[in-house]
Amino acid sequence: MAEKNVNDYLEEGIYGPKELKPDEKRRFLGTFRERVLLALTKKQVMKKGTFPEVEQMLHDHPDAVMVVNGKLGYKALSAYTKLASSYGVESQRITSLDKQSDIGLVLAKGEAVHKEEIFVEETETEQGREEEQKPWWKKLFGLG
């Protein structure tokens, strides 16, 4: 291991300690991508109810940690945090994100799992229900 010189100390003082993959950690709420079992976008977390895939992962991996995006409202996150506590899984709320993340919830382990598909895909029926909903003013006037 190379010894630090004066420039290294100055850079660390100005910019802070060096981090491994800082953009990846910001996106996945402070977790490395290789440790993620399952991830939901903000839009998916905001939907009513919970995804059954999350419950299955909580059941299969009780040693995992659920990390939720603290910038989302309590109402959206409470169902997932209650679900995690019912399976004895620790949940953390991360609010100190420097940049915006498109991720709303991450279920991760302490070590690398290298799972290829981590995002929950929505079925066509769920997407179709969103398209069927009419704006309130069309319902009011009976249009469309």
Rank of each mutant, 00 (worst) to 15 (best):
K43C: 01
Q100C: 05
K48N: 11
P22L: 10
I14M: 09
Y80Q: 00
D60C: 03
L40T: 02
M66C: 04
H61W: 12
D63Y: 07
E19K: 15
L37T: 05
A64E: 05
K47H: 11
D63W: 02
P17S: 09
K71R: 15
V54Y: 06
G49Y: 01
S86H: 06
L40H: 04
K18Y: 08
V67N: 03
G13Q: 08
P62I: 03
R93D: 03
S96I: 04
S85R: 13
F51N: 08
K21F: 13
Y15F: 15
G70E: 13
K21D: 14
Y87A: 01
F51C: 06
F28N: 07
L83K: 00
E11C: 06
N69W: 00
D98Q: 11
D98Y: 09
V67T: 15
G30H: 03
M66P: 00
Q100A: 13
G16C: 04
E11F: 06
M46D: 13
V54C: 10
Q56S: 12
V68R: 07
S96C: 03
L72N: 01
D60K: 05
L72E: 02
Y80A: 01
G73A: 11
T81S: 06
M66K: 01
Y80W: 01
K75T: 14
F28M: 09
E55N: 02
S85Q: 11
T50Q: 07
L10V: 15
N69I: 00
F32D: 14
N69E: 00
S101P: 10
L29T: 07
H61Q: 11
R33L: 06
L38F: 02
A39W: 07
T31G: 00
V54H: 06
V45Y: 13
L97T: 15
K99M: 09
K21M: 08
Q56K: 14
I14Y: 13
V36H: 05
S78A: 14
K71L: 12
E55S: 07
Y15A: 10
K18S: 11
K82I: 04
Y80V: 00
R26N: 15
E90A: 04
Q100L: 09
E12F: 02
R93Y: 08
D8F: 04
Q44A: 11
L97R: 13
S78D: 15
K25V: 06
V45I: 12
K18H: 09
L10P: 01
V54S: 06
Q92N: 07
H61F: 14
K82P: 00
R27K: 14
N69K: 01
E55V: 04
I94G: 02
L58K: 04
K18P: 11
L38I: 04
E24P: 07
Q100E: 14
R27D: 14
Q44M: 11
G30I: 03
D23Q: 11
T41Y: 05
L97Y: 08
H61P: 02
